[in-house]
Amino acid sequence: MDQNIRKPSHRLTFEEAVEVQIRILRGELHSRIAPDYDVNAGRISEVKTGKIHHGSYEEALRRLDKAA
């Protein structure tokens, strides 16, 4: 088997993006969140800025408000 074949990293779902947004809002570092989802910190940044999974931030805020 060729050891140079790399498995692609995980594609975040919208639900995971909401979880990521909640963790960011709670102050966790991108570099600590990323390994939990098998992605790099750049992907976490894309979630934070809304480049991917637009609306996840608003949903995270809604869930945090509901939990309070």
Rank of each mutant, 00 (worst) to 15 (best):
Met1Thr: 09
Met1Ile: 03
Asp2Glu: 04
Asp2His: 08
Asp2Phe: 10
Gln3Ala: 13
Gln3Val: 14
Ile5Pro: 02
Ile5His: 08
Arg6Met: 07
Arg6Val: 06
Arg6Phe: 07
Pro8Asn: 08
Pro8Arg: 02
Ser9Ala: 15
Ser9Arg: 14
His10Trp: 09
His10Pro: 02
Thr13Cys: 02
Thr13Pro: 03
Glu15Ile: 00
Glu16Tyr: 05
Val18Gln: 09
Glu19Lys: 15
Glu19Ile: 08
Val20Phe: 06
Val20Lys: 04
Val20Cys: 07
Val20Glu: 08
Gln21Asn: 11
Ile22Ser: 10
Ile22Glu: 10
Ile22Thr: 08
Ile22Gly: 09
Ile22Leu: 06
Arg23Ala: 15
Ile24Leu: 11
Ile24Val: 11
Arg26Asn: 15
Arg26Lys: 14
Arg26Ile: 11
Gly27Tyr: 04
Glu28Trp: 01
Glu28Gln: 05
Glu28Ile: 00
Leu29Ile: 12
His30Gly: 09
His30Glu: 05
His30Cys: 07
His30Gln: 08
Ser31Thr: 15
Ser31Ala: 14
Ser31Ile: 11
Ser31Phe: 10
Arg32Lys: 11
Ile33Gln: 06
Ala34Met: 02
Ala34Phe: 02
Ala34Glu: 03
Pro35Thr: 00
Pro35Lys: 06
Tyr37Asp: 02
Tyr37Ile: 02
Val39Trp: 03
Val39Asp: 00
Asn40Lys: 12
Asn40Met: 10
Gly42Arg: 07
Arg43Glu: 09
Ile44Ala: 00
Ile44Val: 05
Ile44Thr: 01
Ser45His: 11
Val47His: 00
Val47Met: 00
Val47Asp: 01
Lys48Glu: 04
Gly50Phe: 00
Lys51Ser: 05
Lys51Tyr: 03
His53Gln: 07
His53Asp: 01
His54Ala: 13
His54Asn: 15
His54Gln: 15
His54Lys: 15
His54Tyr: 14
Gly55Trp: 13
Gly55Leu: 13
Ser56Glu: 04
Ser56Ile: 00
Tyr57Pro: 10
Tyr57Arg: 12
Tyr57Trp: 12
Glu58Ile: 11
Glu58Gln: 12
Glu58Leu: 15
Glu59Arg: 14
Glu59Asn: 09
Glu59Pro: 10
Glu59Phe: 10
Ala60Leu: 06
Ala60Thr: 09
Ala60Cys: 06
Leu61Phe: 08
Arg62Thr: 12
Arg62His: 10
Arg62Ala: 14
Arg63Pro: 00
Arg63Glu: 05
Arg63Asp: 03
Leu64His: 03
Leu64Ile: 06
Asp65Gln: 15
Asp65Tyr: 13
Lys66Ala: 15
Lys66Pro: 09
Lys66Cys: 13
Lys66Asn: 15
Lys66Gly: 11
Ala67Gly: 09
Ala67Glu: 12
Ala68Ser: 15
Ala68His: 14
Ala68Thr: 13
